Simulated assay, not measured.
Amino acid sequence: MSTIILTEAAAYEVKDMMAKNGLPDGYLKVSVKGGGCTGLSYGMSAEEVPGDNDELLNFYGVNVLVDKADAPILNGTTIDFKQSLMGGGFAINNPNAIAACGCGSSFRTRDVAGSPENC
């Protein structure tokens, strides 16, 4: 099983977003896909039901899904929500990422390079 951590601040924000989008009992799906300058990028989406290959985690009442194929890349990742004068946003800290692009939207790991695109 993967170890992803959703902080309390992130869980609060996810609950609020899910309720506003009519999915108060939905699932937050955290995924990895190819692309970006460095090869991999994160995805977060609202889902109504788990997929056949999804692991189910729960943090502060938020159901989180991680595809088993993405689990090794995301293992140890912390998802937080940070608020500042400029607004707020999710911050993802993945200890497996060994390189990231300058804009911070893509990464790669030692074992998975992904499929880089031009930025």
Rank of each mutant, 00 (worst) to 15 (best):
M1N: 11
S2Y: 01
S2G: 10
S2L: 12
T3Y: 14
T7R: 03
A9T: 10
A11Y: 02
A11Q: 03
E13P: 00
K15M: 06
D16S: 14
M17F: 05
M18E: 08
A19M: 05
L23P: 00
L23Y: 07
P24Y: 04
G26L: 03
G26A: 03
Y27N: 05
Y27V: 05
L28A: 04
K29V: 00
V30S: 01
V30A: 04
S31Y: 03
V32G: 03
K33Q: 13
G34V: 07
G34P: 01
G35C: 06
G36M: 02
C37K: 12
C37R: 10
T38R: 13
G39R: 06
L40D: 00
L40I: 01
Y42R: 08
G43C: 07
S45P: 00
S45K: 13
S45G: 11
A46T: 02
A46Q: 12
A46V: 00
V49C: 02
D54V: 10
L56I: 15
L56D: 09
L56N: 12
L57N: 12
L57Y: 09
N58W: 11
N58F: 13
F59N: 07
F59V: 13
Y60Q: 07
V62S: 07
V62P: 02
V66W: 02
D67C: 08
K68C: 12
K68R: 14
K68G: 10
A69W: 14
A69P: 00
D70T: 02
P72R: 11
P72T: 09
L74Y: 04
N75K: 13
T77C: 08
T78Y: 05
T78G: 03
I79Y: 09
D80Y: 09
F81A: 04
K82Y: 12
K82M: 12
Q83T: 15
Q83G: 00
L85F: 13
G87K: 11
G88L: 08
G89I: 01
G89A: 10
G89D: 08
F90W: 07
A91H: 12
I92R: 06
N93M: 11
N93P: 01
N94T: 06
N94Q: 09
P95Q: 11
A97F: 08
I98A: 05
A99T: 08
A99I: 01
A100R: 13
C101G: 07
C103D: 15
S105C: 15
S105Y: 09
S106L: 06
F107V: 02
F107K: 00
R108L: 05
R108S: 14
R108F: 00
T109F: 06
T109V: 09
T109H: 04
A113R: 11
G114A: 03
S115W: 08
P116Q: 04
P116K: 07
E117G: 06
N118T: 15
C119I: 04
C119E: 11
